[in-house]
Design a binder for these strands. Structure first.
Lengths: 205, 205
DNA sequence: TTTTACAAACCGTCCAGATGGTTTGTAATT
DNA sequence: AATTACAAACCATCTGGACGGTTTGTAAAA
C-alpha cells in the first residue's frame, strides 16, 4: 500500500479506537496502550503519529469539531429559503442532535480536556463565529441569544448527564425554541415593553 | 485538642486543600499525596478520613452542592413577596453567580467526576426537585423552562470556558431572563399564538 | 488500657514516553 | 530492470515516575 494512504488509515483507526475506548470504558481508561490494543497497532506506532498524548486529545477534539460543523452545515443547507434566522435554527437543531446522544463522546472528550484550557479556547473561538452570524441575521439579537442559550443549556445538561427533564420535554422545548413565528410575535411584545421601560440590555446586544 | 474537633478540622482542611489544588493545578493534579502536602497532613491521615479517592470526590461534590443550595436559599429569602416566580428567579441568580466564577471548581469537579456517573446522577436528582418547584409556581411552565434552560446554558458555557459572550452581554442576558414582567407580557403573546395554532409542547409541560 | 487520629515507610500497578531495531515504500543511479 | 540509498511506518521492550492503597508505628485522648 502507498505510504501516505497507510499512514492516513492507521491514524484514522487510532482516532476511532480512542473514541471507542472513551465511550465504552470512560475517559480515565484512555491510554496510548489501550488505543494501540484497540486498533491492532502498537504503542510505538501510535506515538509515531501523535508525539504526545495531548496530541491525541487535540486530534480527537478536531475530529469532534469537524463532526459538529458538518452537522450544522447539513441543517443549514436543509433550511427553507423563507426562514428569518436560518443559522439560529440550524444551531438549535445541531444542539438537539448533540443532546440526543446520551453516551456522548463530547462529555468524555471534555473531561479528558479538562487540563488543557488552550484547547477549549479553540472551541470557544469557533463558537464566537456562530454567535456573530446569529446576531447578524436576528431582528432582535438578545432574543436570539436567549433562544441559543436555552438550546445550549438543554444540550449541555443532557451531555453532562445533568438534565432532569424527560426526553419528550426536551424535544418539545427544542420545538418551541425553534418556532420562529412564535418568537417573532413574542419579540414584538418584548420590544414594546422595552421601549416603554428601557433596560440595560438594550444597547448592549 | 478534643478528638472530634481535631478530626473535623483536618477533614475540612483536606477538602479546602483539594479545592485549592483543583483550581490552581487542574483536576489532573488532584492526588491524595497532593492533598496531604497542601494541608500539611499526611497521606495516611487523609486516607483515614476518606477511605478511597472516590470518597474524596464525593465529599467534594457534596460540599459544592451545599454551597449551591445555600446560595439558592439566600436568593430565595431575598426575593420580595410580590414576585410571581421566586424559585425561578433565585435559580437564575444562583446560575448568574456560578457563571461569574471563571476559575470555577465546578468544572474541575465535573471533570474529576467523569468516570463516576452515579455521583452525577445525585446532582441531577437534586436538580429535578428545583425544576418541579419552578414548574409548579409558573403560569406557563414551558416558558419557565426556557428561561431556566437559557440561564443554565449561560452558566454551563461560562463554567466550561465555552461561552463566547462578553461578561456584559452575559449579565444583561441574565437581567433579561430574570425580568418577570417582560416574560409575562411575552407569555401572553405566546399563549395567544399557541391557541391559534396548537403545538405539541402544549400538553407536555 | 483501649480507641482515635495521624504519620511514615512501603507495595503493586499503571502509564507516558524513550530507545533500538525491523519492515515497507520510494526515488535516484546504474 | 536491477541496485542502491534513504525515509517513513511500525513494533517490542524498557524505564522512571506517579499514584492509589496498605501496613506499621506513635502519641494523645477517652
Amino acid at each position: 500500500m502507498e505510504n501516505s494512504a497507510r499512514s492516513q488509515r492507521t491514524r484514522a483507526a487510532a482516532i476511532q479506537a480512542a473514541l471507542t475506548i472513551i465511550t465504552r470504558d470512560g475517559p480515565g481508561r484512555l491510554t496510548i496502550d489501550a488505543i494501540a490494543r484497540e486498533c491492532g497497532s502498537s504503542k510505538g506506532g501510535i506515538l509515531h503519529h501523535f508525539r504526545t498524548k495531548d496530541a491525541v486529545l487535540k486530534a480527537l477534539l478536531e475530529h469532534q469539531i469537524e463532526q459538529g460543523e458538518s452537522l450544522f452545515d447539513g441543517y443549514l443547507a436543509q433550511s427553507l429559503p423563507g426562514r428569518h434566522e436560518p443559522a439560529l435554527e440550524a444551531e438549535i437543531e445541531s444542539l438537539r442532535t448533540a443532546a440526543a446522544h446520551p453516551k456522548s463522546t463530547t462529555f468524555a472528550i471534555a473531561s479528558a480536556l479538562a487540563d488543557n484550557p488552550e484547547l477549549i479556547a479553540a472551541v470557544r473561538e469557533r463558537e464566537a463565529k456562530h454567535v456573530e452570524a446569529m446576531k447578524k441575521e436576528a431582528a432582535d439579537p438578545s432574543v436570539a441569544m436567549v433562544r441559543w442559550s436555552a438550546a445550549r443549556g438543554l444540550a449541555l445538561s443532557s451531555i453532562l448527564g445533568l438534565c432532569p427533564l424527560s426526553e419528550q420535554e426536551r424535544m418539545s422545548l427544542f420545538d418551541l425554541l425553534r418556532d420562529d413565528a412564535l418568537w417573532d410575535s413574542a419579540q414584538s411584545c418584548i420590544r414594546r415593553r422595552k421601549e416603554a421601560a428601557p433596560q440595560k440590555e438594550k444597547q448592549l446586544l
